[in-house]
Write a protein that binds this DNA or RNA. Structure first.
Lengths: 234, 234
DNA sequence: TCAAAAGTGTTCACAGTACACCCATGC
DNA sequence: GCATGGGTGTACTGTGAACACTTTTGA
């Protein structure tokens, strides 16, 4: 191991991959970059880390700045460190992905950044290595959402089973049997059935559900069936 | 997003969490830190990143330096970025975890670092936030090994089913039924049965197996049963 | 011949799947 | 009343778990 060294200056940034769902497609929020180089091109939202904040803190700050929203679901994705990934000066970036309710977002949006939603299947060209970052984020989202109850974060507080099913179908680009889907999701005991129905999308109407936040954290691993024994260490 | 800025200097390092298995217990390789501060205390192996290398590159270099081994299983764990995690100067670290065959290691070891193996259940005090890093690495290893054929990397090229089972039992701190364990592992089609037996650990002897490297990469997700449909996007 | 560990066979319960069917409502 | 989408019932299949049983060999 080297001593504390005369390391050449390395800038340290964060980037956020922000997913949303509009009822049809999985979407990604990007902004028009406001400074050189690559000014005017599409880019992930990001920022340099402050002297007294962690990367998590910086990512939350950046997210709040753009969306106006606090307390979003967010997790560290990966650190990107190739020496030449930024064309100006060496910059490493830790990427975070976030899930937001697109409706809530639309009420709070910060237009200064010229943000736009793109379908995950039709992304524009992004600067630097951001396209690769987004690819990794898509993979991780699919991976993780198959094992944990995550996708709720993309929906409004109240949602119907058909809505939830459409979301899963969009994320996995496949179709599910509604009966089996219902039972599987209900078997998690994570959903609270409400009294009222959404009547917009069908004549019969579909009951609203909401996530039982009491059970949410303790059931985060509920989709898992890892190791046979109960006393497996999670 | 800020402009390219006069960010205060941030050092950029990597740390490696190196797991091994001695036939009994899961072990962690640590070194005696060779410079101030905290000189002489136990620490993860690490190093500062070079001007022209990525974090992956730095981690591989550090691993090679210590173990003499190339091509180890290694993956990025997490970036640790708390402003005060290093007491001297702000240093962010991207942690990598690696799996090595403890026998191969013992032939190549670089004693300059004063390395030592500790049982994962009886770790000494580590510098800075390294204890927390190791905790996260343990969790991730358990998580990932439950879903992917990973733990083979901790064994010699030739191993027996009972050895493999013991390894899983050590990692998950539980016991498995040997019949079910055998069938489950064989059902992956990932193992090649060899003609010779290990006669050291039993009278009857246990057949050696080795990983079918042709199938290994394509079957990396074989433990998964994510999404019902075949056309689910992985 | 007996003990010890490797390895196989068998049963059972249950979860996942496919698909038929019933329900509520607007037109 | 009928088309539409929501929701339930059910039969079938395969997997995982438990555990009894057979095999091999050294002492």
């Amino acid at each position: 191991m080297q001593r504390y060294s005369q390391q050449k200056r390395v800038l340290f940034a964060v980037d956020c991959i922000i997913f949303g769902y509009d009822g049809q497609e999985l979407k990604l929020l990007v902004i028009k970059r406001g400074f050189e180089p690559e000014k005017g091109k599409w880019s992930l939202v990001g920022g340099f880390i402050g002297d007294n904040e962690s990367a998590e803190g910086a990512a939350m700050r950046v997210l709040k700045d753009l969306t106006g929203l606090d307390g979003l679901y967010m997790e560290q994705l990966h650190g990107f460190t190739e020496p030449d990934r930024d064309t100006v000066e060496r910059t490493i970036s830790i990427a975070y992905f976030a899930l937001i309710d697109i409706q809530k977002y639309n009420q709070q949006i910060n237009e200064d950044y010229h943000p736009a939603w793109f379908s995950i299947n039709q992304l524009p060209e992004l600067i630097f290595d951001h396209t690769a970052i987004v690819e990794l984020a898509k993979e991780k989202l699919r991976y993780k959402a198959a094992l944990h109850p995550l996708l709720f974060e993309l929906l409004p507080d109240k949602f119907t089973m058909p809505q939830l099913q459409s979301l899963y179908e969009a994320v996995y680009n496949t179709e599910f049997d509604k009966g089996n889907f219902n039972r599987k999701l209900l078997s998690t005991k994570l959903l609270l059935k409400l009294k009222d129905k959404d009547k917009l999308n069908s004549k019969k109407g579909a009951f609203y559900y909401m996530v039982d936040t009491n059970k949410y954290s303790e059931s985060f691993n509920i989709f898992l069936n890892f190791v046979p024994s109960q006393n497996a260490n999670k």
